[in-house]
Amino acid sequence: MLRIANVTMHFGGIAALQNVSLDVMPGGIYSIIGPNGAGKTTLFNCISGIYRARSGSITFKGKELIGTKAHKISQMGIARAFQNIELFKGMTVLDNLMSARGFLHHYGLLAATLYLGRCAREERKCRDRVEEVIELLDLQKCRKTPVGALSYGVQKRVELGRALTMEPEMVLIDEPVSGMNLEETEDMARYILDVNEERNITVLLIEHDMGLVMDLSDRVTVLNFGVKIAEGSPDEIARNPEVISAYLGRQQS
């Protein structure tokens, strides 16, 4: 579904990504792990078109993404939930979720000024779809609350929700549980599983919480200093000596 082949990305003299290749099959949860600065978020930025990889190719359902504009990539069905919350602070939760569906509407400026016919119809349909996501993520209580007034954990959930309302085929989730307590982490894990299983959305996940990654993932890739050092099932990764020395750490005996 998503094929990344030999992607290289430099910032000045630093190689953030070096010949990274991976292949994401439809349907599963695919995790990318690695120490800080390993290039995980850079890889996401390359996929979603915020950065332009220097070489290599990224294809989604056979279409090349490198060089495609960011908003076109998201319209192709790759949604993104950001690591540092990038919500639209001036809007309510509802408007934030609805804002991500703009490209699914087909009315123009003139219809919008009158708010009649097609515009009103599509807005109502949009609201209907957004309510499904609100229900999925238990956001009913804070529908009309401005995002800035919500707690960090809920904002993270809205961030995920905003990606889902785009009706994507694949969602890139960047550290969904960083800074969360155990309970919130468990909730988020359940939401991610729901997203994957109920809505049939392929999940590409970056996360440092090993418990979460090992429990949820179907497949894991490990990056270190911009280089892919391992790929495999969670069990294989947990046993891989190179991964252990680079990231998981050796047990003191």
């Binding site: 998201s74 990038e86 639209f88 703009g102």
Partner: peptide, 21 residues
């Protein structure tokens, strides 16, 4: 309408707005 939401999205976070299509 969606146009107003898109305007605010651009004001609040232009990178995220782009990532939302």
């Amino acid at each position: 309408s969606k146009i107003g939401r898109n305007f605010i999205a651009i004001r609040d976070r232009d990178i995220a707005a782009e990532a939302m299509g």
